[in-house]
Write a protein that binds this DNA or RNA. Structure first.
Lengths: 338, 338
DNA sequence: CTGAAAGCGCTAACAG
DNA sequence: CTGTTAGCGCTTTCAG
């Protein structure tokens, strides 16, 4: 593999000049630059980024640190869409993405900070991390520029991007309210997700605004899992047959709830209305079509990358971004039967 | 950021000893090793992989080179599943994944070989590359170990993994034949995909075995796009109303064909039977459920990584892997009306 | 406009 | 068991 030295030898110049010519410095005559570029091409030269970053201390690499990357993620394509947005923005800015995935097993070996330091990533984007994650605090407090998705953290070297979950949840419940529902159950995710906390607040906001009382017995946790939600919904439908609607904190869970309804011989939306959150692809294809609150993971990826990039350049911009939601009307919500 | 030198200074030993202690060489006393490890922890030392790879010439990094990574890919989660399998295997082997994504625009700037050389990836996995890709040949002929997905290449430093597409396609058409269909259309992808070529062969095999003639007028190309397939299917249904079944080279295209059928007021499966390929998540949720040939992208990722790893260690194993398919029966195929 | 020299952090002979 | 030395490929003062 040709090095800068080989080029220098070939054209009879010093490595310094070659380096500067190739990096576009203007203190080199166009004539020699041409000569050097030609030689570089002939030798099929590629710069060695390892050598470069050893001296510059920058790697032009962004880490993507994901917890719980697995096949489940194919159904809700949240992670994939974020990756896409990230990649889109990052590659345009000349950065490459390196993927760090962890799970509870691997965490014990290396902390997130370790992972990032070893690879000397210029910055990192965190996704799918729980609030009680043992390594979250450490990396936030480190000097590694990072932006975390769906956890509101605030510090000089940390940004975050999330969806307006509270508002989104309120929209969903308001919509149910407008359809005459008064006994509205809530299938939430779990307590260690910030989005769940927010969506719970939105649920409460809506009910309170409608002068309805929030009853704990109508709130379940489906752990963001389709199957778990189905199991919980079965309990719900048995314990609270008076519930005429359920707001689900994710579309995947909404699918689980629909399955439960079917098993209980409850028709959607005639007997029970269901509204989801996310607007995953399945929501559109499923029968009946799932009414839901859409969020934009692709855009989140874009924004996350933009914030990180500004963190890297030291540019003074907003370090947070909260994206709006929109209600997507389909067929899973109906007016309550009188 | 602490270096090996800082540790050496702190414990009063040479950098060599520190290096060897940390890398688990056995020619260092357990006592000094302990001391060094302690000092390393205290200084929050992380090895600098750039420096290391500069001398070892290995980066412990695998490149994943994808063409056409975009949001469409969320629906068929092929890429995501592969990524998952890859990541699973790679991270267990101590490799990190770096993502290179290209599209027709970016390709002109840097060849795949360039990309890989600069980052000095130890090996690379190629996915989503068309047969007529201008840079495919170059990287295959380079000395970079690589394994390509869904293109059969054979050379000492190149492996490949794919699905038994010909056999899979034959299964699909056989199944249609068993249901009495004789006028079977084929919605293929495009000519620059090896899988399309194979699936076409499988389609022909089945028809010939049944002593039916293959008529070009029943074969369309949907470019693996849902929308394009819908448009083409509309033409098909108009031009060839005698067709009672269509085999689609991807589930996504099958969905497009279903939409076209609906627009033509053709019922699936009563008026027209449809069978897909891939077994994407949607296939199960759609109505009617889509009968299809399943392949295992996650497993492909695993195998691809395994082959690459063996290429890296120079281990002598098979450099190719062809995965079997299975027929998934759902509701989109019926017996032909007599 | 060009070159010499130092050094980024690490590993790897080779001695002792 | 430990240390000396050289060098990976590159950028970056500092001189000329």
């Amino acid at each position: 593999m040709a090095t800068i030295k080989d080029i220098a030898k070939k054209v009879g110049l010093s490595v310094t000049t070659v380096s500067r010519a190739l990096n576009g410095y203007d203190d080199v005559s166009e004539k020699t630059r041409k000569k050097i570029q030609l030689a570089a091409a002939e030798l099929k030269y590629s710069p060695n980024v390892a050598a470069r970053s050893l001296v510059t201390n920058r790697t032009q690499t962004i880490g993507l640190l994901v917890s719980g990357l697995n096949q489940e993620g194919a159904k809700d394509h949240f992670m994939f869409d974020i990756l896409n947005g990230l990649n889109h923005k990052a590659s345009n800015a000349g950065y490459d993405l390196v993927l760090f995935s962890t799970d509870s097993a691997k965490q014990r070996v290396k902390s997130y900070t370790q992972l990032c330091r070893e690879r000397r990533v210029d910055g990192v984007i965190l996704q799918g991390i729980r609030l009680d994650d043992p390594y979250l605090q450490e990396i936030i407090e480190s000097d590694i520029p990072c932006v975390v998705i769906d956890i509101p953290v605030r510090s000089s070297k940390v940004g975050h991007v999330t969806t307006d979950n509270r508002q989104g949840a309120k929209k969903a419940v308001d919509y149910l309210l407008q359809h005459g529902h008064k006994q509205i159950a809530f299938m939430n995710g779990h307590g260690q997700a910030h989005v769940s906390q927010e969506r719970l607040l939105g649920y409460q906001d809506a009910l309170q605004e409608a002068a309805l009382t929030v009853t704990q017995a109508l709130i379940y946790n489906g752990e963001f899992s389709e199957y778990k939600a189905e199991v919980e919904a079965l309990k719900l439908f048995k314990a609270k047959p008076e519930a005429t609607a359920v707001f689900c904190a994710s579309d995947l869970m909404a699918l689980g709830v629909m399955k439960a309804a079917k098993r209980m011989r409850l028709r959607v939306p005639e007997d029970v209305s269901i509204i989801g959150f996310d607007n995953i692809t399945l929501a559109e294809y499923v029968n009946p079509g799932l009414t839901t609150i859409s969020q934009e993971p692709f855009q989140m990826g874009i924004e996350a990358c933009a914030i990180l990039l500004s963190l890297l350049t030291g540019e003074e911009t907003s370090k947070q971004s909260i994206l709006p939601t929109t209600l997507i009307e389909r067929e899973s919500v109906a007016f309550v039967r009188s």
